[in-house]
Design a protein around this nucleic acid. Structure first.
Length: 120
DNA sequence: TCCCTGACCCCCA
DNA sequence: CTGGGGGCCAGGG
């Protein structure tokens, strides 16, 4: 019930009472990714001082606030999609890709996000 | 506490 | 391209 705020200019709020401190750190980091850009599990992990991209994947996998908390803007290090809404299946990835494309992100023919869309 | 499972990553064959 | 192995760490049982 307690509304969590995001770092800085809060355009989105989420319920902090049902997430762990680690998840909150991950979600706050997500909210700093601008529309039309993506980052990777690894880089997001590094940005919050975590040495495990996998642990970040765990948090995103359980994200109850998608796509308000934009976990679709996180992809794998090889620029492939990773997962969405708890799954790695094509049907879910299709939705993830659709969201990204609607934000202007472009993919190459092998289904990878083009380099220029990565957050620097 | 130990044990196991992952939307990960990196290296090598 | 595919597969195997090691390392990483949070969360749940």
């Amino acid at each position: 019930m307690s509304a969590g705020r995001l770092s800085g200019k809060g355009a989105v709020c989420y319920d902090v009472s049902c997430v762990t401190p680690f998840q909150r750190a991950v979600y706050d980091a997500l909210l700093r990714i601008p529309v039309g850009k993506v980052t990777t599990y690894k880089r997001l992990a590094e940005s919050i001082g975590c040495h495990s991209a996998r642990a970040v994947g765990q948090a995103l996998r359980r994200n109850p606030f998608a796509p308000q908390v934009p976990c679709h803007r996180v992809v794998a290090s090889d620029a492939t999609l990773g997962g969405f809404e708890g799954h790695r299946l094509g049907a879910f990835l299709k939705k993830k890709r659709g969201l990204l494309e609607s934000e202007g992100v472009v993919f190459d023919q092998s289904g990878r996000v083009l380099p220029e869309y990565f957050l620097v």
